[in-house]
Amino acid sequence: MTETILMPAGRLDTAAAPAFEREMIAATAAGGSRLLIDLANLAYVSSAGLRVFLVAAKRLRAEGGRIALCGLQPQVAEVFDISGFAAIVPVYADRQAALAALR
């Protein structure tokens, strides 16, 4: 089974979160999928954006799928640490490490 890779860019805030959530739901629609989200181009994430990651993690966990994040910029990584989401959603330094973990 191949991995689906998403790469949001810019700001993931209240305005952008619903579209990204729809994108993630579509990507995880097939049961048992493996989802990699590369955040190298994401400059800012708000609380509404963070929540989308947790929704996806919960959904995939229920369906036997897996999720991984990589390439977090320092300011985004800090928000992940603060929110405690880093304990739920595995975070890797780069795409290679994340793909290796997903396989």
Partner: peptide
């Protein structure tokens, strides 16, 4: 604020639909 806001939203989700897994996620975060 953004980090805590996400935690609070998830806590609200758990209060509205109190499923064991959602609550466990809130406990973890």
């Amino acid at each position: 604020t953004q980090g805590l806001g996400a935690v609070l939203m998830c806590a609200d989700d758990a209060a509205r639909e109190p499923e064991a897994e959602t609550i466990e996620l809130v406990r973890q975060i």
